[in-house]
Design a protein around this nucleic acid. Structure first.
Length: 273
DNA sequence: AACGACGTCAACCGCCAGTAG
DNA sequence: ACTACTGGCGGTTGACGTCGT
């Protein structure tokens, strides 16, 4: 089912995601959002291309993804919309909360397509029969999906520590997609601005956060100033409340990704690793 | 038990549109 | 206008599971 892990020419890993990779990706995106998929793997400590990370997150790791069998209503909707729109899977998936385009596409190809074709054939047969004034009642049978009795494996089957329970706890309070706000807060700063305030801390080689009435600045001395993060205090509050909604055991997992350039989370009160 | 055919679905690939410089 | 970069999308692949012989 899953592909054999391998590497491409540039040494990037390919194939099945491991539990450890999942954990790193979840930990990073949950905290900092997907501010740049291409750069993300580097900072999250993943030997993957950004595209692979994006796909993994969007299709399997992000919260609120509905797993398991498609309901009759969902299947009917897919069939109906496919009739109207064709293979516009993302548009169709948008009408099915919690379902991804990939999942809808797979379900179509493995189950619904045949059903529709069978129904079409049956209808053709029915028309023929009717025209020939034969028996007027036809039994239309729909082939049962194998998933009806044997649901698909959870994406967490290989990473059980990231059970959906963890995420349901998160998402009950916050929508993870809200992390897009971080995009607007990563700014290139004038070097003098940083050096004035941070020189002491840089010399001491400590990460730090500075706060005034309007802005909270987080920085690590290991990186250039333009990689640091400036956060509005409203967002700082948001992060604090977000932190409170998380499951402690999740955040206390050992984690070694290089995230210090973005944020020294101790200043935010995040649990220590 | 062994084997092949078929089904499933996670993941990859290539293309395209939008955007910034 | 052009180029480079990025994210998004749909098509396709291929490893693994299941079923039938």
């Amino acid at each position: 089912m899953a592909r054999t892990p391998s590497c491409d020419k540039s040494g990037k890993r390919k194939g099945t995601w491991t539990a450890e990779e999942d954990r790193k990706l979840i930990a990073y995106v949950s905290r900092y959002g997907c501010w740049n998929w291409r750069q993300l793997p580097k900072f999250a400590g993943l030997a993957r291309c950004g595209k692979s990370c994006r796909l993994r997150w969007l299709n399997y790791l992000r919260p609120n993804i509905k797993r398991g069998n498609f309901t009759q209503q969902e299947e009917d909707l897919i069939i109906e919309m496919h009739k109207k729109l064709g293979n516009r899977w993302s548009t169709i998936a948008a009408e099915l909360p919690g379902r991804t385009d990939n999942e809808v596409k797979n379900h179509w190809h493995t189950s619904l397509k045949k059903r529709v074709q069978n129904n079409t054939n049956t209808n053709i047969e029915e028309t023929k029969v009717t025209k020939s004034r034969d028996i007027g009642i036809l039994q239309v049978t729909t082939p049962a999906s194998s998933q009806d009795t044997n649901g698909p494996l959870s994406p967490f089957s290989s990473s059980s520590e990231f059970s959906s329970t963890t995420y349901s706890d998160h998402s009950s309070t916050h929508d993870f997609d809200d992390f897009g706000f971080l995009d607007g807060f990563i700014e290139s700063m004038d070097q003098s601005f940083w050096m004035d305030d941070l020189s002491t801390n840089v010399q001491n080689n400590t990460s730090c956060a500075f706060q005034n009435q309007d802005t909270t600045i987080l920085v690590s001395p290991n990186h250039s100033s333009n990689e640091s993060l400036v956060l509005d205090n409203d967002i700082a509050s948001f992060l604090d409340s977000y932190k409170e909604s998380t499951v402690d055991s999740f955040w206390t997992q050992p984690y070694e990704a290089d995230m210090s350039h973005v944020l020294n989370y101790n200043h935010w009160g995040f649990s220590e690793f």
